[in-house]
């Protein structure tokens, strides 16, 4: 692959949980706790994980809607938020579609005004912005004649999400962050929007970061998949390699939780038990060791590094001591190589 469009290094976000008398935070929750990944031009990187794993925080960090506690984001080789690439300039390149289609549109603005707002911020004339809004509406499958002058409460969930997509595209970005963008939609409408996203990606040469809790949808949409657990990357690899040959026990458990759709082969036993631990007080070492069937002493002692296999055609990263040579884990898998991410 070529050089990445977006490089994320050591990204950390801590939120204050408790404050002392003087408003100084005393307890933190690390929603995102040191993650690294690259986003390549033209790919769709799926991000999966359970609630509280930090997927949405990652999205908001990428959008610079919240300030990272540590770490850097580089776009096209330039560091975001420095003189190289000011945030406002970066924002034109990366746009986001939110989960809640209703809350993410201003109820007092018409559809046309909502879409045209972004371009006017960046110096496009109102007239041209409106024209752009109308043609984008057409592009996302909404007849501008019928929808441009409407207010959001008059639209259905699927129509609103199409407007949100048009709004995000109005700035002609190169990356679209889709944060559970289809999760709130009915299944029959979800498929339409997924198809639309696939079409738009091709038409405009977009790169997607596709965040979802739905493993089936992520498999359908993504070229590569990133699995998060408690603020860290557990596994990152090409979609089919990851779905058919998952390396991290958590990924395996997540995939094992998929229901069979076969009344004669129902799930017999849950792949893992218990709930994800509280991110305020994450377990030491490997975050997953409290629920992992293969956990050993080393797992609670040291945090595993994110490593790719030596024989991988395309790099398939995993943070697990079973895949780290010389980690001392008794069930060491073959093919692991000491190549750090």
């Amino acid at each position: 692959m070529t050089s990445p469009l977006l490089e994320v290094r050591g990204l950390v976000k801590q939120f204050p949980v408790r404050k002392n008398l003087f408003g100084r935070a005393t307890t933190f929750v690390s929603a995102v706790d040191g993650i690294d990944f690259d986003l390549f031009e033209g790919e769709t990187l799926g991000v999966v994980g359970e609630s509280g794993c930090g997927k949405s925080t990652t999205a908001r960090l990428l959008m610079h809607l919240i300030e990272p506690t540590a770490g850097t984001i580089r776009f096209g080789g330039r560091t975001v938020g420095t003189a190289e690439l000011p945030v406002k300039e970066f924002r034109r390149q990366v746009q986001m579609v939110f989960q809640d289609s209703y809350a993410s549109l201003n109820p007092r603005l018409t559809v046309e005004e909502s879409i045209a707002f972004g371009p006017t911020v960046h110096g496009v004339s109102q007239r041209e912005a409106n024209a752009r809004a109308l043609s984008l509406l057409e592009r996302v499958g909404l007849d501008p004649r019928r929808f441009a002058g409407r207010f959001t409460h008059e639209l259905s969930g699927g129509q609103r999400q199409r407007v949100n997509i048009a709004r995000a595209l109005a700035l002609q970005p190169r990356i679209l962050v889709l944060d559970e963008a289809v999760s709130a939609l009915d299944k029959s409408v979800e498929a339409q929007v997924l198809n639309l996203l696939a079409d738009l990606k091709e038409a405009f040469g977009l790169t997607y970061l596709f965040i979802s809790h739905d493993l089936e949808v992520v498999r359908f949409m993504s070229t590569r998949v990133l699995v998060m657990y408690l603020g860290r990357v557990a596994e990152l690899g090409p979609t089919e390699a990851l779905y058919t040959g998952s390396r991290h026990p958590y990924t395996t458990a997540l995939l094992g939780s998929l229901l069979s759709m076969d009344p004669d082969h129902r799930t017999a036993a849950p792949p893992i038990t218990g709930d994800p631990p509280n991110p305020i007080d994450p377990p030491p070492g490997c975050r997953f060791h409290t629920r992992c069937a293969y956990a050993e002493g080393v797992c609670s002692a040291r945090m595993p590094a994110l490593l790719a296999g030596a024989a991988d055609a395309a790099p398939h990263w995993v943070a697990c001591h079973m895949h780290a040579p010389r980690s001392g884990h008794s069930k060491l898998k073959a093919g692991a190589a000491p190549e750090t991410a």
Binding site: S156, S188, V189, A191, Q192, L194, N195, F220, T239, E240
Partner: peptide
């Protein structure tokens, strides 16, 4: 898999 189109039900509820 990736690249296929989903057969969607047209219209809205």
């Amino acid at each position: 898999l990736l690249g296929n189109r989903l057969p969607a039900i047209p219209g809205s509820p």
